[in-house]
């Protein structure tokens, strides 16, 4: 298909002699939401970190808009500006106000004028209902609010796709909902997302494709109905049986 945003082909990643990703192939199309599921240590996070070049892969290829990211002329900083990344532990900058957290990337990486960026950042914060907290420091916010700010921070870069790494795993159960609601909104408005998650109901609701990873192997891939209702592999059935 021509509208492939991110395409991973036979990706292999080793840490020392331990293979964390074995021959994983995955394509993310424009406006598509793909959920990665699998036990802790199955390689979900590593896959995301390979995608935005925080890790270098040992085999296979990764393409962004048809351009191989293994090309030596590639500037990883430019690649990452097209991919918003949200972490399990938020990683907001504690020394910057909420507004400055959101504005840092556009101002310092994209060199856009501060006033434009601030205006846009305020609009983004208004979207998550936190415009009144713009001047506060992140540690004054709840975990759910912090994670929503982190999501908005990556949106401020106007990325082509979002990579989300178990963004609700560090949250209080009561705060998970607000973050997932935001992600559902983003999915509805056509944001391209690759989401590693443990929230099966959420994956069933928003994903166009669900990918099941087991010990670094892509075991099964398909629509939510196919994976959740009619899993073809024993490993998938065993995993779904455990998380239900």
């Amino acid at each position: 298909m021509s509208d492939a945003v991110l395409k991973m082909t036979s990706v292999v990643k080793r840490f020392d002699h331990h293979e964390v990703l074995r021959d994983v192939s995955l394509t993310l199309h424009r406006h598509e939401v793909v959920c990665l599921i699998g036990a802790s240590g199955s390689g979900k996070s590593t896959l995301l970190r390979c995608a935005n070049l925080l890790e270098t892969i040992n085999g296979g290829d990764i393409e962004l808009f048809g351009q191989s990211l293994l090309d030596p002329r590639i500037d990883p900083d430019l690649v990452r500006r097209h991919m918003g990344t949200v972490f399990q532990s938020f990683n907001l900058f504690p020394h910057l106000s909420v507004l400055d957290n959101v504005a840092l990337g556009p101002v310092r990486a994209l060199k856009r004028p501060l006033n434009d960026v601030r205006e846009e950042a305020m609009a983004l914060l208004a979207r998550i209902g936190l415009q009144d907290r713009a001047g506060e420091f992140p540690d004054r916010l709840s975990g759910g609010q912090q994670q929503r700010v982190a999501i908005v921070r990556s949106l401020a870069m106007r990325p082509s796709l979002l990579l989300l790494d178990e963004v609700t795993s560090a949250l209080d159960p009561t705060l998970v909902g607000e973050v997932l609601d935001l992600l559902s909104d983003l999915a509805k408005s056509g944001t391209t997302m690759l989401i590693a998650t443990h929230e099966m109901n959420f994956a069933r609701e928003v994903a166009h494709q669900v990918v099941f990873l087991d010990q670094g192997v892509l075991v099964e891939q398909g629509s939510p109905e196919e994976i959740f209702d009619h899993p073809q592999h024993d490993a998938t059935r065993a995993f779904l049986g455990r998380v239900r």
Partner: peptide, 21 residues
Amino acid sequence: PHGQILAARSLGLTQYATMRR
């Protein structure tokens, strides 16, 4: 914390900007 560096680099900040900001 290393997460701060990951977050900054993921925003596309250069090594220098990550250090400085």
